[in-house]
Amino acid sequence: MYNLVGNEVYKIIMKKRLWVIVGILLILIGLFAYGEHYTRERTQNQIAERIGIDDVEDWREITNQQLMDLERRLDNPFIPEEGRAGIRVRAEQLRYYLAEDINPTTFSAAQFISNFMEQSIFLFLPLLIILLASDIVSKEATTGTIKLLMTRPVPRWKILMSKLLALTILEMIVILLMATIALGISYITFGIGGFREPVITGFRVVEGELDVSNIQTVSRGTYILMTYSLGYVVAFSIGKMALMVSVLVKSTAASIGIMMSSLIGGTFLTFFISDWEITRYLFNVNLRLTDFISGDLQPVEGLSLGFSITILLLWALASTVAAFGVFSYKDILD
């Protein structure tokens, strides 16, 4: 088994797929870092200009101003109730920062790293995993090399298991690559480390109200570890689903297409039919795991971290069962 997993990892590395992923990460994280840097500066300058202070480093004033802006928007009768809840949460967070003397406007390398995962967990990370996993069986079916594997004195389930384990290892590598590249680029862009700075986590929204009873303060370093672990949960389950599609569909293009469209289509669903009970059991609705710890509002009400992780793992389990069932019994006809 050890040999087989080694072979599969070797094949993925030799296919140079990982280099494509590194390339994409470098370009995207570079752009993201630049964008983040640019917007931060602009908002701070705008606010500073409006309230007539020269010192953009005075975070208390800026935060106060942001808070007032939010309260003003809450008075606006044209904002729908769903929007209000979000604003109320954000305002509550700012108030909390002010009261606890925590500066929310500083931007450190560490903050960028966790932000990057928060922003990519529901679309970009799954896309990378799809890129990695979608051809793992289908390419062997298209090129015919699957016949080489299946005519060894090795049972079929072991062949698929080796691919699954190799994939699980590479998902981890992708997460580590994301962290490393984000760290490298953000260090160049933002300089400051900031791994010890406190982060407040544990905000919860219950019926449009902010629940602060579970609030905890952790260091940014711990927070990064938490977000990237959640990222791994997403990578793990998306990988298993992509593996299943790769078993079911012979063409790699179709396999990537199916995974991408269900990922993006699911995101649309959350906007349009978010009050339909069944949507909460879709995997795509449950991808924003980091929002639970950062305190952002979930698109569908009533989700919790435990629930979302359970749903994702159930999807992974069901996909794995289906993949093994089909792979072990299918006829290789061409």
Partner: peptide, 19 residues
């Protein structure tokens, strides 16, 4: 069919390691 992104020897090594 063989893995065309590997050399002939690597292909044989890969397959030999499976048994």
């Amino acid at each position: 069919e063989m893995y065309d992104y590997l050399s002939g020897w690597e292909n044989l090594k890969l397959l030999a390691s499976m048994e």
